[in-house]
Design a binder for these strands. Structure first.
Lengths: 217, 217
DNA sequence: AAGTGGTCTAGACCACACC
DNA sequence: GTGTGGTCTAGACCACTTC
């Protein structure tokens, strides 16, 4: 890393092989391998068998975004977290959901509409459905005290998740709930979670104006 | 991973130590260590010396977002990339910049205002400054053919970067440049890049309506 | 065919955190 | 003190990719 930083090895350069570096640094090859592997994982190096290791030319910068449970997000801001379940009902998947998530039309879904608050101020509005075929226990959970997100996180393992971040204009209902002007810019996160091939839950989260997500590389 | 998924090991559970797992799977402890370390890096396990390894209680927290160079982002959408430098001038840092990035008032900055296009359609608007004290060579670079971002990526190593993602309403000028209604919701990315303790560049990127950033865990 | 990274082993010592 | 993970070593074989 120091040699990349000091530009002794410049982007695109071929660097010495593992054996050579191990000799130079007086350590085992496995140690060099781990170091180079970690630099490659973080995007600074490109490695190929036989071709060798090069300093990345187009470092597709990989940022690790921490997506906290909303409770933690709010509490990290020094505020008290609370939430209200605005509505809850069982429903069948729409045609779009059936196609997008591979759900049978007979699948029983639990729909939840929730407003999350920070110190009584609205923080984020959440629309969610949960696949009751995969998580039948959710029917008996008390989702008024422990949020659906936290219940799922504690009771289901995570296999695969997709996140999409975008910007949107607050609808009339959203602006009312989030206490912001209509059409104000809101940060929107879609998230779906799967176990193997089964969709467990999908969420649309709308954060009020001023919300930002920060990350460090 | 299979045992976490199958809920044989549930969130919060203490799992066996490395030695025990190595015996069970008939492999070396180093192999178990690597497997557990990778699962911990991806957020599925929490590890502590002496305390042991537990299945993470908040497993979804780390998503790796790939932040591509805009050219790649556009080309990945199957469109032709181009850009125009709208304005370029040298300037001194404002008081806010001096404080925020630790710049001396005498620091020479290069300011750049750029519009990025996908198939001639506006894609993103960029405001950037570059610290010429750290990167004097930029003064001679032809930034009309190779974008400042790509020039920097090829010529400077990346040490440390900060990203902030948020939503904003397009200003009048932005809506004009991005060909969208005034106050349309736009996706805004702030990004600053440092080498050791020197700020190299900071960027504000405004993506037109409809832009979204997707990531998979 | 040959050279590179990818992975594994068996063993060792260390550092930290909890007792 | 003691048990856990963290790291390293020396050696070995494998797999991919380029020649």
């Amino acid at each position: 890393m120091h040699r990349i930083n000091s530009r002794r090895w410049r982007p695109g350069d071929l660097i010495p092989g593992e054996v050579e570096l191990a000799e130079e640094f007086g350590c085992a090859r496995a140690t060099v391998n781990r170091a180079l592997r970690e630099l490659a994982d973080s995007g600074l190096l490109d490695r190929k068998r036989k071709a060798g290791t090069r300093v990345a030319l187009n470092p597709v910068r990989k940022a690790t975004v921490e997506i906290p449970v909303i409770r933690q997000d709010v509490e990290a801001r020094g505020k008290d977290y609370s939430f209200d379940v605005l509505d809850r009902k069982e429903l069948a998947p729409s045609a779009v959901l059936q196609q997008q998530y591979g759900l049978a039309s007979s699948t029983q879904l639990l729909g939840l509409w929730t407003l999350h608050r920070a110190d009584t101020m609205p923080f984020a509005y959440e629309e969610r459905w949960i696949n009751m075929a995969v998580v039948p226990e959710i029917a008996d959970a008390d989702l008024a005290t422990l949020s659906a997100n936290e219940w799922l996180v504690r009771n289901m393992p995570l296999l695969r998740g997709e996140f999409t971040f975008s910007a949107g204009n607050a609808t009339g209902a959203e602006s009312h709930l989030l206490n912001c002007p209509r059409d104000a810019a809101v940060f929107v996160v879609y998230r779906s979670t799967w176990v193997v091939d089964d969709a467990i839950t999908a969420v649309r989260l709308v954060y009020g104006p001023g919300y930002s997500m920060k990350t460090v590389v």
